[in-house]
């Protein structure tokens, strides 16, 4: 017994471990803190439902999920990057790049070649970031922040600054990804579900997934266990780029035309969804399922705010207030109390 419950005797008696030993919140309060995000989500859902009965309308719900799909697919890839202990702030501008490229190639070489061509180019970008962060061990915040700008410039150079449109919008099958239904379910939702399932299994069930957690949890220990850390980080960025390319495909297919800035700002929303899902920015924790929940929470809150008549621009403010609250609750749950003088 004494050995099992050794929380009480973490070796250094330094105050850092005190969060583990604190039982300041009673059971119910503790549950609230732990599930704070879901509880807050529930409160919002009830509030929105009372405020506007259209909120729970099946069409509205389907609409929310559908419009969350693009952000959601991107969040799946970023989940891998975050669990491996890194950041990816380049996904927004990379998504713009993917959209512009696939639309441009569509008219030049046809959709059947445009899609693999676009995937190849986006994967190259992902490989480049993966090389810088994984093999050269550069700080991922700096690298991906730089790439955010660099890829934006690349997109503008590629398009000459002009919007990109498909010439014959009626006569192409390219719109199936963004606009059609299968068995009454919109294709973007199906694709989101498919990618989420595959990546969810990859992360939870395969040796690679295990290594992602190990590298993010303690990179040094992972190296000492014979895990090739650089390769794992590199692969995470490749996965992220793959997801971005898929999001770009959905976006291009839905609108068949696009501005150069279509993905601008999405990197933060994606990160917000991942954090709302409960992944730690320090790495080592999070799951695909939680990220999907995070994506849906974000989507429903934004939709609900619109339905209760909040001005569109005010949404940015409210969304971020909610996200910051969520992060606070999350940290509070780990500490076991709402406020602590130490981290």
């Amino acid at each position: 017994m004494a050995n099992v419950t050794d929380k009480t005797e973490v070796r250094s008696s330094g105050p850092r471990e005190s969060g583990m030993n604190s039982f300041n919140l009673a059971g119910a309060g503790r549950l609230l803190a732990r599930q704070g995000i879901l509880v807050a989500f529930g409160v919002f859902m009830i509030g929105f439902t009372l405020a506007n009965e259209r909120f729970l309308d099946p069409d509205n719900i389907m609409g929310v999920i559908r419009s969350s799909a693009i952000l959601g697919v991107m969040a799946l890839g970023v989940t891998f990057v975050v669990i491996s202990g890194n950041l990816d702030l380049s996904v927004g501008s990379m998504m713009s790049f993917a959209t512009i490229v696939v639309l441009d190639l569509h008219d030049k070489i046809g959709p059947a070649l445009a899609i693999p061509g676009m995937y190849a180019m986006v994967l190259c970008l992902g490989a480049f970031i993966g090389f810088l962060v994984g093999y050269l061990k550069l700080n991922s915040l700096i690298v991906t922040l730089g790439m955010l700008s660099a890829i934006h410039g690349l997109t503008l150079t590629y398009s000459g600054g002009k919007n990109m449109d498909i010439a014959d919008k009626e006569g192409t099958w390219f719109s199936v990804f963004g606009q059609s239904d299968v068995l009454g379910i919109p294709v973007p939702i199906l694709l989101f579900a498919l990618v989420a399932s595959v990546l969810g299994i990859l992360l939870a069930k395969t040796p690679f997934g295990r290594k992602v957690y190990a590298v993010g949890g303690n990179g040094t220990a992972a190296t000492f266990s014979g895990i090739r850390r650089a390769r794992v980080v590199f692969t995470c960025y490749l996965l992220s780029a793959f997801c971005v390319a898929t999001a770009g495909l959905l976006q291009a297919s839905r609108s068949l035309g696009s501005q150069n800035t279509v993905g601008q700002g999405l990197e933060l929303e994606v990160l917000a969804a991942v954090i709302l899902g409960g992944a730690s920015l320090l790495g080592g924790s999070g799951t695909i399922f939680k990220t999907v929940i995070g994506v849906l929470i974000l989507g429903f809150i934004q939709n609900g705010l619109l339905l209760v008549g909040l001005q569109f621009y005010a949404q940015y403010v409210v969304t971020w207030v909610i996200i910051i609250l969520a992060v606070w609750l999350d940290i509070a749950a780990k500490r076991g109390k709402l406020w602590s003088p130490i981290a």
């Binding site: 295990r210 957690y213 949890g217």
Partner: peptide, 16 residues
């Protein structure tokens, strides 16, 4: 620092 991923469970650490 080098031996364990402290946030992981016992089994996963052992078979890493």
């Amino acid at each position: 620092g080098q031996g364990l991923v402290l946030g992981m469970n016992c089994r996963d650490n052992m078979t890493l």
